[in-house]
Computed example of a mutant assay.
Amino acid sequence: MTRETTPLIIRLDQAGIPLNEHDTAASPEVPWFVRLLQAFSGWLAALFLLGFIGLGAMSVVESSTASMGLGIAMIVAAFALLRAARSDVLEHLALAVSLVGQLLVAWAWVMVWETSAYLWWPLLGLQVVLALVMPSLVHRSFSAFAASLALYMALAMSALDQAASGLVLLALTLFWLNEFRWPRHIRSVQAWGYGLLVGLLVLQGVAHVGQPLLIQFESHSTGTGGWVAPWLNTIVLALTLALLLQRVFKTQPRHWSVFVGVAALLLMSLYVPMVVQGVVVMLLGVAIGHRLLMGLGVLSLLVGMGSYYYWLDTTLLIKALTLLVIGVLSFVLRWVLRKSLRVWHGAITPREPRS
């Protein structure tokens, strides 16, 4: 090993990329169906273990203090088990134990605060802490997903649930744009990004259905938050697009049509926020060359367009004509942009997509 190659090997090791020495045989990768069977075995073992514990701890749920204490103890035990886990069975067993501990902690807070907004903010803080400290990528992804749902529920108590998806999209963009900023935490950042991405898709599905996650939220759908939420969501989307454009302009020249497109997207977000969010996710995937983000961005865009179609309180003929006009205008806009950006495209070096 020479002095010139030492920094590169150290940086690869810090990034979590294993290097096999010449005298060490590379271990074969475990097939996906074997890992799936191990995960199922872990959850099955966890169900039997938790059922055995539950038979002797039925009185715990009647006391908020006992429920809180047992829940924290189970979360700590899951943390210790995850640090010592070297197989998928133990990892998923620890994940199940952690979930039960989180449910006990949440139940203790429910008995204290019932369904007020004070319940969801501590749950959001708990999920954020678990996403940061738990030594498991699966657990971190789940905690990021649960944090997005807790944020939605906390904001829904003030009729600001529409802004929750915008805030999740902002956090999602920050994580993926800074994916390689901290080499030692690349996989953790990816885990948080995937968890938030799933949470964003779930929130868009909730908006598509048109019903809140909990029935109690219907009583909070009126008030000041009803008209503040769309504007707050637009402001958050503007900040997200600004961060995305800042990343794009580092490698590509600026053009006036980009700012016109951003203004059009922000105007659309006041009426069809789900469509704009899908476009932003798709643009984020294109900017960082991530195929999965591109595909899920297209899926999010299709869900948003479908929601807009069903939200229109008009006849089927008017809906069909509206979609026809939007489609024709989109093709015309594409033709105009291709003509005006022909010189601009010549200066762009496209980035190779990655899976």
Results as ranks from 00 to 15, higher is better:
Gly226Asp: 13
Met1Thr: 05
Ala46Leu: 00
Val262Ala: 05
Leu149Ile: 14
Gln102Asn: 14
Ser141Val: 00
Trp344Val: 10
Trp192Val: 10
Tyr309Gln: 11
Ala78Gly: 01
Val129Pro: 05
Tyr310Glu: 15
Gln277Met: 11
Val281Lys: 05
Leu177Phe: 11
Ala85Phe: 06
Leu214Glu: 12
Pro353Trp: 12
Thr315Glu: 04
Ala171Cys: 14
Ser269Ile: 03
Ser219Trp: 10
Glu62Ala: 13
Pro230Cys: 03
Pro353Phe: 09
Ile326Cys: 14
Pro253Lys: 09
Arg187Thr: 03
Met294Leu: 06
Trp32Arg: 13
Val328Pro: 02
Arg354Val: 07
Ile17Arg: 09
Ser188Lys: 14
Val100Tyr: 11
Val236Met: 04
Tyr118Cys: 03
Thr65Trp: 15
Thr240Ser: 06
Ala57Cys: 06
Ala26Glu: 13
Gly51Glu: 05
Val258Asn: 08
Met294Asn: 01
Ala15Ile: 06
Leu292His: 09
Leu316Gly: 06
Ser67Gly: 09
Thr224Asn: 14
Phe79Ala: 08
Lys319Asp: 10
His290Met: 08
Glu62Gln: 13
Val76Pro: 02
Asp161Pro: 00
Gly295Pro: 03
Phe180Gln: 06
Gly195Met: 08
Pro7Cys: 02
Ala164Asn: 08
Leu323His: 09
Leu44Asn: 07
Trp344Glu: 08
Gly304Lys: 08
Ser148Trp: 02
Glu114Asp: 13
Ile235His: 01
Leu177Pro: 02
Ala320Thr: 13
Trp107Lys: 03
Ala347Met: 14
Pro212His: 06
Ala229Thr: 04
Arg11Ser: 15
Val260Glu: 08
Pro353Glu: 02
His220Thr: 01
Ser67Ile: 06
Arg187Glu: 10
Phe79Asn: 07
Leu214Ser: 03
Arg342Gln: 15
Ser136Glu: 01
Trp231Ser: 07
Ala347Phe: 15
Trp182Gly: 01
Ala39Phe: 12
Val209Thr: 10
Arg351Trp: 15
Gly295Ala: 06
Leu299Glu: 07
Val60Thr: 12
Leu151Asn: 00
Leu104Ile: 08
Leu200Asn: 00
Ser188Thr: 11
Leu37Lys: 11
Met68Trp: 12
Leu103Cys: 12
Ser143Arg: 01
Val275Asn: 03
Leu301Ile: 08
Arg11Pro: 05
Leu333Arg: 05
Ala78Pro: 06
Pro273Val: 00
Thr2Ser: 15
Gln277Phe: 00
Ile326Phe: 13
Val298Asp: 03
Thr173Ala: 12
Gln211Arg: 10
Ala46Phe: 01
Gly42Trp: 01
Gln102His: 12
Leu90His: 06
Ala320Ile: 12
Leu104His: 12
Phe331Gln: 11
Ser158Val: 09
Phe175Tyr: 14
Gly226Tyr: 15
Pro18Glu: 04
His185Val: 10
Met1Val: 10
Gly195Leu: 09
Val272His: 11
Leu119His: 02
Ala164Pro: 08
Ser221Phe: 09
Leu196Gln: 05
Trp192Met: 12
Trp176Pro: 00
Phe217Pro: 02
Arg184Trp: 13
Thr251Glu: 15
Gln211Met: 13
Tyr308Asn: 08
Trp335Val: 04
Ile215Leu: 13
Trp43Arg: 08
Gln14Ala: 09
Leu103Met: 11
His139Val: 14
Pro28Leu: 10
Leu301Lys: 11
Leu301His: 10
Met74Cys: 09
Ala25Asp: 15
Leu296Thr: 10
Ala154Asp: 04
Gly199Thr: 01
Leu201Cys: 03
Gly297Cys: 04
Gly16Cys: 07
Ser67Lys: 03
Arg35Ile: 04
His290Val: 04
